[in-house]
Structure formats: C-alpha cells, structure tokens
Design a protein around this nucleic acid. Structure first.
Length: 429
RNA sequence: GGGAAGAUACCAGAGCGGUCAAAUGGGGCAGACUGUAAAUCUGUUGGCUAAGCCUACGGUGGUUCGAAUCCACCUCUUCCCA
C-alpha cells in the first residue's frame, strides 16, 4: 500500500492536486506541514498533520515541519480569526524546542537516512524580507483577482456578515505561499499538506511556484476531524488536550481517548495509530460483536498514550482507571502507592486537615463544607448525602458518619467522592 | 421626538395583597440502569445553628397588620410611529 492508498484507507485524504500521486510514486518527495508555535506544546488537534508526516516518512519520503514563527503573528483568516499575539523571538525558540521534542516521538529527525525529518521556522527567512522586495518579488506574480477568489477571502468580504478583513489577513495566503516557494528552492520540497481548510492557502503556494519558477508543486489535504455529536474535536470541558504531561496528565490523556464514542473511535484509530489495516479491521469486527468491551477505545488509548508518553505512564493510567471506575473498595485503595494516588488525582480539589481534628472526630457535614471547603454550603452536603452520593474512601456514607483517624489511608490522605466522577483529596498534615 | 409593553432563580417563563423560597420547561447535579456511552426513569437545584429563622422577584421610597403582586420616582430593555 503506498502513501496515498494508505491515507485513503485511513480516511485522511480529502483532496489533492492532479499529479500528486504520480509525483510521489516517481521519487522520494519532500513534503511539509505547517504548525503555529502559539504554545510550548502541541495539542491533539496538531496530531493529524503530524500523522500525515509520519505516514509520509514511513512511505520513504522526507517530511518537513514548518514552524510558523512569522505566519503565526499574522493570523490565518481561514476559519475564525482572533487577533494573534505577536510572539517574540525568544518565546518562539522556546516553543520550537518543546514542540520538536514532542515531534521526535513520531518522526525520525536524527538518523542518517536521506528522508530524515527536518524542522524549519519561517521567521528565519521572513524576518529579513523587506516590504518592497516582498511586493516586487512575490506580489508581482499573483493577481488580486486570484487571491480574491479564495473561499476564505470571499466569505469575509461577500458573506452574510461581511466582517471585512485587514490587509494583513488578506496577505496571509501570499506569505504562506512564500514559505512553500522558499522550501521548494531550499529543500526541493514539492508538496504541502494540511487540513482541508488550508486548501486555498496551499494552492496559492503552488501557483506562485508555477508562475515564478515554472515548476510544479502539489497540494494534499485531509478532512477536518469531527466528532459524531458535532462537538469540536480535541476539546474537553477543561480545554485542549495537550501532549505535554504538565498541561494534560497522561492519565487524562488516556481517558480522553478511552471516552470516545464508538463511531469516533473507529475513525480515530485509523487516523491516529499506525496499526495495519488487517489489525484495525479485525478490531472493528470484534468491537461490533461486543461493543461494551470497548476494545477500539482501549487500543486507541493504549497506542497513543505509549507513543506520546511512555509504557509506564500507560500502565499507571490503566491502573488508575480501574481504581477509579472499577468496583474498587477501600482495601484496593490502601494498596496503591501514595505517589501514584497523588498523580492520579492531580487536578482534583485538595485540602489539608490537621491530624488533631481527626483524632477528635468530625461530622461528615462539617468536614466536607467548613473544614475542607469542597462544598460551598452545608445544605448541599446534606442534600448529596440524602441522594446517597457521597463516598469516603470508596464507601458510601450517610449523614451521621463521623470522620476519624481510622479513615486516613497510609497516614496521609482521605479520598472523598461525590457521585462517580467527582473526587476530592484530603491530605493530612 | 411621540406612544406601548416589560424587568421574577443558571436560561426561558407563570405568578387572585397573605397558604410564595416562588408553577412549568430547559439546563446543572445526583441515584437506578449501562460500557467511564446514548436513551430512559427517579430525586434534587437560595443560606443557616433546619418542624424554626434569615436573605431574595431591576433600584429607591411609599400604602398596608402583611407586597413578587398596589402607588410614586429612577435605571435599563424591547416594540411601534416619526
């Protein structure tokens, strides 16, 4: 299966320019995907582009990751555009270094192979470009008519709301096109890939290369990733799902994939894992026979957690998940190492209570409201208790329960819980 | 500029001067069921020292034994006509 067939099978091919497949079959081809360095970590939305590059490299071609140090300052009008913050050089360098580390888990940058991945920053060549030389060397080759015909532009000036767009945003496609031109000249890069919303910007690049150099350069896009329920992919209530374990703990990362709906999981496992088609087809069949086992989700979560984080992080996440969601008891809880509990419950509300108070014992209502501040009012605690929603160390309790030293696990903590998913951690100190 | 209607809890939206912490729907939270899903059913959704009390129906005053409800003024919103 070649690169294009592979993408097709995985549902990652939205559109490509005629001749793209021929070019890829002809020779080792260099292709790039652009990433905005807006943060010092990638999030899973970036992963689609990264996986395209991964498959590309697997197929023997050479991937380039272009960090949009310059373009990130402008703001792409495709889709909605908020004013971008201008990032200074230092911040971009820092972000680049962090992002590269994450990319290394997917792409091979260091080997001596001819198709080792390359990372570049368009700020390096854009920063010295003077406005005059830009409009003379680049602007001369593209007509405004051509630029106006792009969807991203048309929508803004002729669409329902007619927001209008600044000249800066209008120029965006030219700047991105300049990147393509530069990479073509510097690295013989003949293909640009991206999400389907990038089609217009990418083709401006090939157009520029054709007019200026008389050479052919190609475009390939993948569909935008969606969720079956129409929500935005990669977002949770708490925001983006990051690859950086500091921003999104491995446990939460694992949980994100595990919680995918069935239809999404089937789609995502093709896009985000390298499992071969036979294996995936097999998994899908099994999953349909016994959907409650959620094989797809588990496999998906496993593949990604191990790749992005590590085997140990994966093991810990699985263990934590069974602890939290399985029918675990107080005894199970006591066997888990303290450090691990802390990492599992990273991000849940915490409070510390002195051992003195517990020696005397304290009523559950006061404990959960006044003492720890987990609940804003006592009325709410009482209500939850009536609903049988409160557990201490995995054991349901009622209104008359008194917290004492006996409830402390490992001399260090008490685990309180409202319902199934809301945890509160009390540290003793 | 002239006229009309309105402002109630997270949102929408009821509310004879006492029995209104305020109907109903949505949303939220929890329980059951389940696959850590969806759907469904049930409970709950101002605070407290809890059969009691306190604070709340745009703001400020007033009438009254008693006001979300009546009156005056103010602020804001919406609609209609110029």
């Amino acid at each position: 299966m070649n690169f294009i067939e592979n993408l097709k099978w995985r549902g990652m091919l939205h559109d490509m320019m005629p001749g793209t497949e021929e070019q890829l079959n002809k020779e080792m081809t260099t292709a790039y995907v652009g990433i905005d360095p807006t943060a010092d970590s990638l999030h899973i939305g970036h992963l689609v582009g990264v996986m395209m590059l991964k498959h590309l490299q697997e197929a023997g071609h050479r991937p380039i990751v272009l960090i949009g140090g310059a373009t990130g300052m402008i703001g792409d009008p495709s889709g909605k555009s908020l004013e971008r913050n201008l990032l200074d050089e230092e911040a971009i360098k820092h972000n680049m270094a962090c992002i590269k580390k994450q990319l290394e888990k997917f792409l091979d940058f260091d080997s001596d192979a001819p198709n080792a991945a390359i990372m570049v920053n368009n700020y390096d060549w854009m920063k010295d470009f003077s406005f005059l030389s830009f409009i003379r060397d680049i602007g001369k080759h593209i007509t405004v008519n051509y630029m106006m015909s792009k969807d991203s532009v048309k929508k803004r000036i002729a669409g329902e709301d007619r927001e209008g767009m600044s000249f800066t945003e209008f120029s965006y496609q030219l700047v991105q096109g300049t990147d393509f031109l530069h990479l073509y000249q510097a690295y013989d890069c003949k293909l640009q890939m991206g999400g389907s919303d990038q089609w217009g910007n990418i083709t401006t690049g090939s157009e520029l290369i054709k007019r200026k150099l008389g050479k052919e350069a190609f475009a390939l896009t993948c569909p935008l990733i969606t969720k079956a329920d129409g929500g935005k992919f990669g977002k949770t209530e708490s925001g983006n799902v990051w690859l950086d374990p500091e921003k999104t703990s491995p446990y939460k990362f694992y949980q994100f994939w595990l919680n995918c709906s069935d239809t999404d999981a089937e789609k995502y496992i093709k896009i985000f894992t390298l499992l071969d088609p036979e294996r995936i087809t097999d998994l899908i069949t099994q999953h349909n026979e016994a959907p409650h086992l959620r094989l797809l989700q588990k496999e998906l979560a496993k593949e990604l957690t191990i790749r992005v984080h590590s085997q140990e992080d994966y093991d810990a996440a699985v263990e934590a998940s069974t602890l939290l969601f399985g029918n675990s008891t107080t005894d199970n809880l006591k066997h888990v190492p303290f450090e691990m509990l802390l990492s599992v419950f990273e991000g849940v509300p915490q409070a510390s209570v002195s051992a003195e108070i517990l020696k005397q014992g304290i009523g559950i209502v006061d404990f959960l409201s006044e003492t720890t501040g987990f609940f804003p009012s006592k009325g709410e605690v009482r209500r939850s208790l009536k609903e049988n929603a409160i557990s201490i160390n995995k054991q349901k309790v009622d209104e008359n329960y008194t917290i004492t030293s006996n409830d402390v696990i490992d001399d260090k903590l008490i685990l309180a819980q409202k319902g199934k998913k809301n945890y509160y951690l009390v540290l003793i100190g």
